[in-house]
Amino acid sequence: MTHDTHTGFGGLTMPDGARADIAVADGRIAAILPAGMLPDATDMTGYVALPPLVEAHIHLDKTLLGLPFQSHLPGATVADRIAQEKSLRASLPLSAFERGGALVRQVAGYGTQAMRSHVDIDGDLGLSGLEDLLKLRESVADLAEIQIVAFPQNGILRDAPVADLLAEALANGADLIGGLDPAGIDRDVAGHLDVVFGLADRFGVGVDIHLHDAGELGLFELADIAKRTEALGLQGKVAVSHAFALGSGLPGVGAVVEALAKARVSIVTNGPNRMVAMPPVAMLRKAGVAVVAGSDNIRDAWSPHGDGDMLRRAGLIAYMQDFRDDSDLEVALSMATSAGARLLGLSDYGLSEGARADMLLVRASCVAEAVAGASPDRVSVRGGRVIARDCKLV
């Protein structure tokens, strides 16, 4: 792959609305100057400068990109969908390394430079998916950073080898431990969470749990997760994806939100359709809960939808939450940029002097227009080098 190297980018609109030139040297932002101060800079007048997009929830091992279109395999429950996926997975001609690589290249074209990917660990797959993603992470390091969550898609207690396999995955390069519907899948909240948090404590890693369980049951599980997070000193290192129970409107939601805020448990959402209850972003943020954006499934056995464009995902979340004001659209963008960067613990992130020269330049007059329009006219810059134009890798 070739890259264009630039000494700087001129005439940009910064997130605060100011016009500026960004000088680049040795892969870092050397200076942010008033527009017109860098006569040799590449003219980017008409573009707004954003930090790189961050994908907080993706399944690189599940995608079917690179294969002919697969018609959706319906399932009425999470367990049904797990079974359908296992059946399909047995016949796939391309490895997770190949399919996941196609997805990484696609999302990098859109401007994503960091992502957290879950990888299935179960008695059938063993660690094969993890091995593919570890190899993939190394091969695409010039495009994006990848965090890997060891994810028990088939449950833990109902799949006897999984607890030991999860430990082995963490010992062999997985960055975080995952979990899935302690009640809905394993039917044992305490038993499931004992394994997840026990492994987090043993290996000194963070936690990222899928929680589809809704209503009072889901709220109970969220409260338990917050309690365990505080007990183990894992504040700021635990995330719950989906958390549909928070959108239930039940009387107990407020107390659970307070517990999550106190334990600094983050919530990750993909802006789901109205068939499920989406966590209330504004209410959570007001209470001090970090809310982060992710795509979740992209063109896989779970969903034929999605493309991994986190700018469009921010716009979708804004639409689902009825965010209309410029300030609200800026919040939606932060969920796909700075909030995701904090969740992933990224260093050197952001548009500031001395930071790595990583940025996304989008044809728009301001942040709000960038989110509302999600223009494909974009330039993705990594370490001062242009790696993608118009949503395609250079």
Rank of each mutant, 00 (worst) to 15 (best):
A370H: 01
Q106K: 15
G126T: 04
N273L: 12
E138F: 08
L346Y: 09
I298P: 01
G306K: 03
T2F: 15
G354L: 06
A30S: 15
D124H: 15
L246Y: 04
G340Y: 06
G315R: 01
R81F: 11
V379M: 12
G184I: 00
R385I: 03
T45V: 08
D208Q: 01
L166Q: 04
T2A: 14
L284P: 01
R89G: 02
E145A: 15
A25K: 12
V24E: 04
D213V: 03
G101P: 02
D175K: 11
A263M: 09
V381L: 12
A301Q: 12
I29H: 06
V362R: 04
G345I: 03
V205T: 10
P52R: 02
Q70M: 14
D201P: 00
T2M: 13
L234P: 02
A388Y: 07
R299I: 14
I177P: 00
A20W: 05
N172D: 09
D61V: 03
Q147G: 11
G111Q: 03
P15V: 01
E230P: 00
D21T: 02
S295K: 05
R89M: 10
N154C: 14
P152Q: 06
A171G: 13
N273W: 15
G308N: 03
R313A: 05
L143M: 07
A214N: 15
A18Y: 11
